[in-house]
């Protein structure tokens, strides 16, 4: 089933092409409230950054969007369809915060396994694997078992796996942790390319401010609440700040 509903009309007027719509989501683990009434909308072809200190609830929010965890209140819609939805998962490439890889298998076998969970022809699959591996500069290491990979290599393989089925939406949870600055830059360039040339929608979490600067929209998360969102420039202008970091600190003070 081809699920594609990128445009939202109201009264026959095209509003925006919202691909991810988080509607008042709350979540608690036991007594601790981890997410408080989060609303956010992500448009097609946007790089949307979730920034916040560790423990602020970014991973939890991302999991709710992918549908591998469920909210206590509120809904998540992707392409206007409520998650979780198996067909929609076809269009999502997810990279978890902790590398979920099969250590006994080689890099290639890991990629091939995840690729074979999506409908894809053999030749197409080979091409996609080669492309994804090249993107993260792992082509030469694919024959090695993942147990022999370094932390950064595992991170890159996880990213390649998220890309391997050519999804419309990429959801990346701290994708650049443990990756050296040079490769980090080349990965960001590639993400920009995916966004500009292929109209991919990218949701990325980070706790590094200079990465947040590169996003089209930044959402600041603190203590499970979304305290501010907007384009980096708008946010800085609103607070008269030079750095996003200042905005984050000031907005945090306002909240508490």
């Amino acid at each position: 089933m081809e699920v594609h509903k990128p445009f939202i009309f109201r009264n026959g007027v095209l509003l925006v092409s919202i691909e991810i719509d988080v509607k008042g989501v709350s979540k608690s683990y036991g007594k601790t409230k981890v997410l408080r009434d989060i609303h956010l909308q992500i448009q097609r072809g946007q790089i949307y950054g979730l920034i916040g200190p560790s423990g602020s609830g970014k991973t939890t929010l991302v999991k709710l969007i992918v549908g591998i965890d469920s909210a206590d209140e509120g809904d998540v819609e992707v392409f206007g369809i409520k998650m979780p939805n198996l067909d929609l998962l076809q269009d999502i490439g997810y990279m978890a915060q902790s590398d979920a890889l099969y250590l006994e298998l080689t890099g290639y076998e890991n990629l091939a396994f995840f690729a074979s969970l999506y409908p894809m022809k053999k030749t197409e699959m080979k091409k996609r694997i080669a492309y994804a591996a090249e993107l993260v500069k792992l082509t030469g290491e694919l024959k090695k078992k993942v147990s022999a990979y370094s932390g950064g290599m595992k991170r890159r393989l996880s990213l390649a796996i998220a890309l391997v089925h050519d999804p419309k939406i990429l959801i990346l949870d701290e994708p650049t942790v443990g990756i050296d600055p040079e490769l980090r830059l080349s990965i960001w360039n590639e993400l920009m390319h995916l966004k500009n040339e292929h109209q991919k929608t990218i949701l990325i979490t980070t706790h590094v401010m200079d990465e947040a600067e590169k996003c089209d929209i930044v959402a600041m998360v603190r203590n499970g609440a979304l305290i501010k969102n907007g384009s980096p420039d708008d946010l800085k202008a609103a607070y008269g700040a030079n750095q996003l970091e200042e905005v984050f600190l000031q907005a945090g003070r306002e909240q508490s």
């Binding site: 591998i68 198996l86 076809q90 997810y94 902790s98 979920a100 890889l101 250590l103 969970l117 999506y118």
Partner: peptide, 14 residues
């Protein structure tokens, strides 16, 4: 424990 089960659940597998 390796997280791969959760990762699998983010694919269209039933």
């Amino acid at each position: 424990t390796s997280g791969t089960l959760e990762r699998l659940m983010a694919t269209p597998i039933r």
